[in-house]
Computed example of a mutant assay.
Amino acid sequence: MVIEFKDISVVVQGPVQAYHGRAQETGITHKCLQSIREHLPGATIILSTWAGQNCEGLEPDLLLLNEDPGPTISSYDAQGKPGYLNFNRQLVSSAAGLREVKTPYAVKLRSDNFLTSSDFVRAQQAYPQRCLADSLFQERVVVNTSYFRRYCDGQKVVMLPSDFFHFGRTMDLLAIWDIPLFKDLPFDEERRGHPQHRGAPNTCPHAEQIYCNTWLQQLSADVPYLEHRHHATPEMLEYWDRFMASNFVVLEPQQIGLGLIDRFIPRSKRPNEISHLDWLLFYKKYCDSSYPASNVELFYSIGWRRLLKMPLSHLKHRLKQGK
């Protein structure tokens, strides 16, 4: 099946100018919208941002000025000082935009990213085999490898996909982003003097893990609560690999046609991130045993660096934790 650009809406979400705690490259949202017009002619553009943002010169097909929910208290240090994350800001702007989509397919794109091609449209249909028992989405969702972590602190982790870019069926993207807003973490007076966060005293999950665990639990009753960042039993690791194999297409930014601002571009591929070659091996193992994915190619591209760096990262983490 060929997906036509007119059947795609692009939800550009987030701020269009800098605000406290969030730097923004000047003119990046203008560049983002122009890139969509260039590479997806005929697609609908929905800009979902905040009331009070200066949107002069931006010309989306639909502009949503959402009420800013503000940051969410997600932790307290030993002195009781709160720590904040933008959980609800991303949820509000993403979900509000996706709810307005009228086309069968949608893209969720950060307002500080842009497109360099439309290659992701073809890639979404390029891996037709799926394991029915593992398929929770109607169709595959294309995701980006940047900040999609396979390892944290030298240990394999689960449920940590990148939130930069999603492309797939609109209903599948809504399943990811239209989830309940997070409440501020209440302060526990009995734990004063100790850090407080999800999973304490273990390391708190990354924000992307908390998002992912939430929407996965809404899709399936079999998904366990992720207790902390490194909560990854053998069963959970296999579940996550199987889920990725049948529900995602994991691509490098250049394979998607995703442009990143300078601060997101590493000098070389980060060994703790998943790679497209990793994902191809999952696809071969769980979906299509005839697919020509290669462990040798993975080793020579990034596997050897993992063998060197992951044990050192794990040791550094253990020393930091005093274990």
Score class of each variant (00 low, 15 high):
126 A>W: 01
5 F>K: 12
85 L>G: 05
223 V>I: 15
70 G>D: 04
171 M>D: 11
39 H>Y: 11
203 T>G: 04
97 G>W: 07
238 E>T: 13
158 V>A: 13
207 A>D: 14
143 V>W: 01
37 R>H: 12
246 S>H: 14
37 R>A: 06
209 Q>R: 12
160 L>I: 00
47 L>C: 08
63 L>T: 05
245 A>T: 09
105 Y>E: 11
228 H>D: 14
198 R>D: 07
78 A>R: 15
283 Y>D: 11
87 F>G: 01
204 C>L: 08
107 V>G: 07
161 P>A: 08
93 S>F: 06
9 S>A: 15
124 Q>L: 11
222 D>R: 15
161 P>L: 04
297 E>N: 05
121 V>E: 05
65 L>G: 04
168 G>Q: 01
195 P>I: 10
299 F>A: 08
189 E>L: 04
46 I>W: 01
230 H>Y: 15
130 R>F: 06
155 Q>P: 00
293 A>H: 03
254 Q>R: 09
121 V>D: 08
290 S>E: 15
212 C>Y: 13
73 I>E: 00
241 D>H: 13
182 F>T: 06
87 F>V: 02
317 H>I: 00
5 F>R: 05
71 P>R: 00
273 E>M: 12
2 V>C: 10
165 F>P: 07
154 G>L: 06
150 R>L: 14
143 V>F: 01
63 L>N: 08
77 D>A: 12
45 I>K: 01
147 Y>H: 14
141 V>M: 02
174 L>C: 10
277 L>D: 08
189 E>V: 12
221 A>N: 09
272 N>M: 08
